Simulated assay, not measured.
Amino acid sequence: MSTRGTRLYPLRLTVTAKPLVFGGHAIARRLGKTGIPDWSIAETWECSDVTGAGGVVTDGPLAGRSLRQVVTEHPEALMGTGWSGRYFPVLTKFIDATGALPVHLHADDANAQRLEGQRNGKTEAWHILDAAPGATALCGVKDGVTTDRLRAALEAQDFDAVLRRLPVRAGETLYVPGGTLHSFGPDTLVYEIEQTSDIQQHAMRWNMEDGSPVGDAEFGSNLDMLMQQVDLETRPDFTPGLSVAVGDGVERVFLCAGPYFALERWRAGTAEPLRHSFATAQILSNVGSPVRVRTGAWSEELGRAETLLLPAACGEVEIAGPADVLFGYLPDLDRDVRGPLREAGHPLQLIGTLGGSTDTRAEAIRSANLG
């Protein structure tokens, strides 16, 4: 039965927990997330419209509806004026890299469509919530490495010979375009935001689901596909983000921004609540203590490491402090990112360091409409 006449409200979605071999117990024990299995968990998919792992609304009039059904039945109320995409375009996760992730890449849009038969690829960003002293990440191919040298190193599993190893610090963010070889961990806890996709190509001789060995024929085939998709020129770096003062004891930090997603971290003390107005759906994830969330007449507590999807129709949200939360969304880059940052005095060149922010929201909308 259609719910097209239902007024949208903040949506709680089911979470998919992934017990991959690099995981541990940090999402439950360090972030305080409840309701997930009491075994080694690598990822929790907080807001997902990936086929086969999509979120389902858990409460209210839309309970039992999948996120994809909500997008289909309430496109503009959920996503904002002018939206007509067929799926929710942003995926968010908590990732526990107690062990190191496999070295892998995700295709960009063009290669996903050309080689994988997928509607879009996967650009992503990592916001580091916690990392052990000396933690590092691999991201991007070293300058001057040829395709032949890269393949030989991947075959030998000699990743440091050809990939950049970067220092990892809590609070920093890395924007990772599709086609970029990467890995992070061990001892790293991440909030990841990305295009809605589970597309990937690995360069490992083991499977990340259970650690079982990958045979020579399969490994060679995997490398064949990976080498067709790898970008040898992309070498992203971590950034601390760009901050905007928005109230007494309230801080807004733009962590990353590009055509497919933007991510902000807001902190508030007790002098005044956090108040945020928006025109597109917001994925609100709590990375601090439990908080009280209000929008219109709706008011509920959001616990540790819990997530709410705030439809565009809500328009604004108020969160009482102390608060430490993340907002992820599909941006109109001029309205949602460049405008407030320029007003705060940040030059356009510096804003560009947040990611692919020279592009426009239209590119992401076109990608979503392919679905």
Results as ranks from 00 to 15, higher is better:
residue 197 S to K: 03
residue 198 D to F: 09
residue 200 Q to F: 10
residue 201 Q to W: 14
residue 201 Q to E: 14
residue 203 A to M: 08
residue 203 A to R: 11
residue 204 M to A: 02
residue 207 N to Y: 12
residue 208 M to N: 11
residue 210 D to F: 10
residue 210 D to E: 09
residue 211 G to D: 09
residue 213 P to L: 10
residue 214 V to Q: 01
residue 215 G to R: 07
residue 218 E to F: 05
residue 219 F to D: 01
residue 220 G to S: 01
residue 221 S to P: 00
residue 221 S to W: 05
residue 225 M to C: 06
residue 225 M to R: 14
residue 231 D to C: 00
residue 232 L to Y: 13
residue 234 T to K: 12
residue 235 R to S: 14
residue 235 R to G: 12
residue 236 P to D: 00
residue 238 F to D: 03
residue 239 T to H: 13
residue 239 T to R: 00
residue 240 P to G: 03
residue 241 G to H: 14
residue 242 L to A: 11
residue 245 A to F: 04
residue 246 V to F: 05
residue 246 V to W: 04
residue 246 V to P: 05
residue 248 D to K: 13
residue 249 G to I: 03
residue 250 V to S: 11
residue 250 V to F: 07
residue 250 V to H: 08
residue 254 F to D: 06
residue 254 F to V: 12
residue 256 C to T: 12
residue 258 G to I: 02
residue 259 P to D: 10
residue 260 Y to T: 06
residue 260 Y to C: 08
residue 261 F to C: 02
residue 263 L to C: 15
residue 263 L to V: 07
residue 268 A to M: 01
residue 268 A to W: 12
residue 269 G to Y: 09
residue 270 T to V: 12
residue 270 T to W: 01
residue 271 A to N: 10
residue 272 E to D: 06
residue 274 L to N: 09
residue 275 R to F: 06
residue 275 R to M: 12
residue 275 R to W: 04
residue 275 R to D: 06
